[in-house]
Design a protein around this nucleic acid. Structure first.
Lengths: 345, 345
DNA sequence: CTTTAGCACTCTAAGTTAAAGAGTGCTAAG
DNA sequence: CTTAGCACTCTTTAACTTAGAGTGCTAAAG
């Protein structure tokens, strides 16, 4: 795509990016000169920086200021220059202790802990899409009669989800009738992912069963309803206040827009879902993002699995001036731990 | 407590409060004079206002500015002067349509809707404490064997809660054994509130049952665990960005402190719990609040019930300059609707 | 005794100007 | 190709000025 830069330009670009990430101030030629290993004068650096600006890797906020990286500059840095941060001991420990901490059987709790770790270790806002119910496979369906008018449907997936819902049973069902239906359904649905349980399949089953029993309408409505309803997934947020620490969000109006975004769970869900790629970690810088509201931000996402099945996505959202190497390292570690600890239960 | 004011002072105080709530600017004597029905000159008003300042109802931000109400001023206004806002038709409709909207069986959904309505109708941040599990009464306990090693415990309360939890069954239990235990437990626990199911009671039951069956240790551990765990209650937030609209939060630092507070669910819970009073609506202005973090805010809380049993609290949190009459009206209506719609299901 | 007009006074908010500082681009010399 | 030197640009900060709002006080009027 873009021609590769010579070594000196790479060094200079890297120096600008690193410094700008650290200080949030435009980086001048003197600063780079001090930073640059093979002692070059600031004038030389200036020439190179002017070149880099022409090529679109850097910009000046105004004539007499240092340079800041453009989106293209960050991209080049991420693709070619960044060296993977070696995380300090304590971060490593925080991650492993807070995730794999023994007997957390509840997935939700693990997820919430992950948002904490992720946001505090990166100093950014983290968002995690809870396990995607619909990608889990159907395992078991039970119906518990509660009283003469109501029943409790319990749906269990191979990934350990348990969903339940109270339903009205207008016609009273006998135990044996219920048993029959339930075991038939279990037989037919076993192993399918929830995604695959489409309305048409349900209709088919419904026809099938109606031949035998005519009272099960309610039971089906509940199944349909519970499936439909559970398609909505929660997005967990962590460290929303962290954006207030970033100088790029000193403007109250920007803060408002960002927080408004955070309040819209369905939108966050779409953003995460669109960015979940099968393998490893995805970095979207600025306008590489498809969603208007975050075109000035960088979103770094990773996916986690249970038994090699991708079931959720986690992300870090912040300004394009973000400590890429750190965030990516943390994300990498966290995903690994999550995968391990989720699959071992 | 504080001596009552004469009618003219009341009028003037009321005018200052109302105007300040509306404009967020210190209110001068001219403004009050225009506002005051029996035409008085600004000089007279000035004298009265000076008196009110001496008495502690008003203050001046600086020598040559208008007055703003003190906490004492707001208190007097709320207690004696405020006339109950007549809500506009559409607010009324929003409330009733979004709450009682037919077939919302899920309590959680009703609660979430309530936060929406409450924050948008008041233009403040709303917080709602989800139904308090521990105040509900035990209704039914079920144990569903999932496979040879695991079981699903389902706990149902009179208020319609359903909690479940997967447990490990190290010793395999036969159906009949399980049945025995479950029915014994149901018998013993029926009607008790979750609050009343203390560890000591559990221990007693445990001793009781051990005489008959010795394999139930696991079952008890699960009961204990599930009870313990469910004591934590969710607090739902709505309209957190609304505080950004208030001019008193134009300072990024204040915003940060506020948002930090919103992130601490346990603290919010404590705040709400401490303010939940059996009947109707409580207004806490400024330092009347016990919690340090909201001593500069006003918190208005109300409680909602299921079948005359108080199970949750909702609140509106904002600056002391708050449209008290509107917020209280909205809260009143909302609580009524909530009570109706929760008790009718 | 209460009310009001008048006026000097105070304080803030907003705008203007000036000075300092950082960093650049260009030129010319090494 | 590199670098020292320098004029130039632009921002940031502080100091100063001005306009305006509102007060408190005094003295006169009701």
């Amino acid at each position: 795509m873009s021609a590769s830069l010579n070594e000196r330009k790479e060094h200079i670009l890297g120096a600008v990016v690193v410094n700008y990430i650290k200080t949030a101030e435009p980086v001048g030629s003197r600063t780079v000169a001090r930073f640059y290993p093979g002692g070059l004068s600031s004038a030389t650096i200036r020439n190179e920086m002017a070149d880099l600006e022409d090529m679109g890797y850097l910009v000046q906020p105004h004539t007499s200021a240092g340079r800041i990286p453009t989106q293209k500059g960050y991209r080049y840095y991420v693709d070619h220059l960044m060296d993977m941060n070696i995380l300090s001991q304590d971060v490593e420990e925080t991650i492993s202790s807070s995730i794999s901490a023994g007997k957390m059987r509840e997935i939700e709790q693990i997820i919430i802990n992950s948002t904490r770790v992720l946001s505090s270790a990166t100093n950014q806002t983290s968002l995690i899409m809870g396990p995607q119910f619909k990608k889990s496979a159907f395992h078991q369906l039970r119906i518990l009669p509660l009283d003469e008018k109501r029943g409790l449907v319990v749906l269990i997936t191979d990934t350990g989800f348990i969903k339940n819902k109270v339903i009205d049973l207008h016609h009273q069902l006998s135990h044996s009738e219920l048993q029959q239906v339930v075991s038939y359904l279990n037989h037919k649905l076993y192993g399918l992912t929830i995604d695959q349980v489409t309305t048409s399949l349900i209709n088919e089953l419904k026809r099938d069963l109606f031949k035998r029993l005519e009272i099960l309408e309610q039971a089906f409505i509940l199944l349909e309803e519970s499936l439909k309803e559970e398609r909505q997934i929660r997005v967990f947020l962590g460290g929303t206040t962290n954006i207030l620490n970033q100088p790029e969000f000193k403007d109250v109006d920007k803060i408002r827009r960002m927080l408004k975004l955070f309040e819209q769970e369905p939108l966050l869900f779409k953003i995460l879902e669109d960015n979940s790629s099968e393998d490893s970690i995805v970095v979207r810088i600025g306008s590489e993002n498809e969603f208007e509201d975050i075109k000035e931000c960088t979103l770094i996402t990773g996916t986690y699995r249970i038994h090699d099945k991708t079931i959720g996505t986690l992300g870090v959202l912040g300004p394009t001036r973000m400590d890429y190497s750190r965030v990516i390292s943390v994300m990498q570690r966290l995903v690994n731990h999550l995968n391990q600890s989720l699959s071992s239960s």
